[in-house]
């Protein structure tokens, strides 16, 4: 019987029919999706911190309004995604719990510090750029609620990347000091961005099953190569240099070859030893704990209003 359910399920996926929350699904599919979607949600939420760091210090009102809108969008993305994950039967509190206890991961890129204003440019161009490359194929995820959330997210991401590129372009064409600041940001954010696509394909054992289930549409290395090819062209417009001396066009493959990725660094940050892991988690926990009285007060107020309405009706 189980076998039969599983065949029907895979058959739907092969025919590009979406799976909805109440449909039968293998337990492993459910668990994998809960992990994928909640990690994505956590990344959006923690991802607000590095940029939030510069909102009060944006160089002018236009930039401040833009950065504020972008960070607000990321909060929205986190909320769309948490509610998509909840349709799979995990509670919001349980997801927060997993984040705060360190059990759940989020994208390692947010464990790097934002040292200068130019970092807002580099994050928009590279980090949101890499996120878009990952997310566009997810609009076709086999799981309906995730796919629908991703459509909304992708529509909103586009301005994030463009505003970042504009910041870098302005700095690069500015004074010599501003140009140096832009190059420095690129130097620091390039490799962590390249690592955002995750481990190499041969070290990513779940890829095959995820692709069969269509919750992943391209492999990590495919997306990484596409990202590098595109950025290598775009950087010319910025008049900046990508910090990789091995980056060069390969006639045979039709792609850019690139240098060796420091996977040691990648795993160090994943395991919690990046420059800001501790700080990011502490900040989230503090926000949650210090918000407790607000949550309790709102619940008490709602309860009081309900009771008052009931008394009036009686």
């Amino acid at each position: 019987m189980e076998r039969n359910f599983e065949e029907v399920f895979q058959d739907k996926i092969d025919k590009e029919i979406k799976i909805e929350p109440k449909d039968w699904m293998p337990e492993k599919y459910r668990q994998t999706l809960i992990r994928q979607i909640s990690q994505h949600a956590h990344s959006e939420i923690v991802g607000m911190l590095p940029e939030g760091n510069w909102i009060t210090r944006a160089p002018n009102l236009r930039r401040k309004a833009i950065l504020l809108a972008k960070v607000q969008d990321e909060a929205g993305h986190g909320l769309y995604l948490y509610s998509a994950a909840e349709t799979l039967g995990i509670s919001r509190d349980e997801m927060y719990n997993q984040l705060h206890s360190g059990k759940a991961k989020y994208s390692s890129i947010f464990n790097y510090p934002t040292l200068t204003w130019a970092d807002m440019g580099a994050i928009g161009w590279l980090v949101d750029g890499a996120a878009i490359m990952n997310q566009v194929p997810l609009c076709r995820s086999s799981f309906g609620p995730y796919a629908r959330a991703m459509v909304r997210v992708c529509k909103e991401e586009s301005f994030h990347q463009r505003q970042g590129f504009e910041i870098l372009l302005t700095l690069s064409n500015g004074t010599e000091a501003q140009h140096r600041m832009a190059q420095d940001a690129l130097n620091r954010w390039w490799w962590p961005s390249v690592m955002m696509f995750g481990p190499k394909d041969d070290e990513s054992p779940n890829t095959i099953q995820s692709m069969r289930w269509k919750i992943k549409r391209f492999t990590n290395d495919e997306l990484r190569q596409k990202f590098i090819d595109i950025c290598t062209e775009q950087v010319k417009i910025l008049g900046l240099t990508i910090p990789d001396k091995d980056l060069k066009w390969n006639e045979v493959t039709g792609h850019y070859d690139f240098g060796t990725i420091d996977w040691d660094e990648f795993w160090q940050v994943v395991q919690g030893n990046g420059p800001c892991n501790k700080e990011r988690l502490e900040t989230r926990k503090k926000a949650w704990e210090e918000g407790a009285w607000v949550r309790e007060a709102a619940t008490a107020y709602a309860e009081k209003r309900k009771n008052r309405a009931a008394t009036k009706a009686a």
């Binding site: 909320l79 909103e156 709102a298």
Partner: peptide
């Protein structure tokens, strides 16, 4: 369009405005 958590209907509408109608 989706769902969200709120203490009561008034907060649900206010949150929906921020989460689902920013554009």
């Amino acid at each position: 369009v989706g769902s969200l958590h709120a203490a009561d209907e008034q907060m649900a509408i206010e949150n929906a405005r921020d989460v689902y109608t920013r554009r």
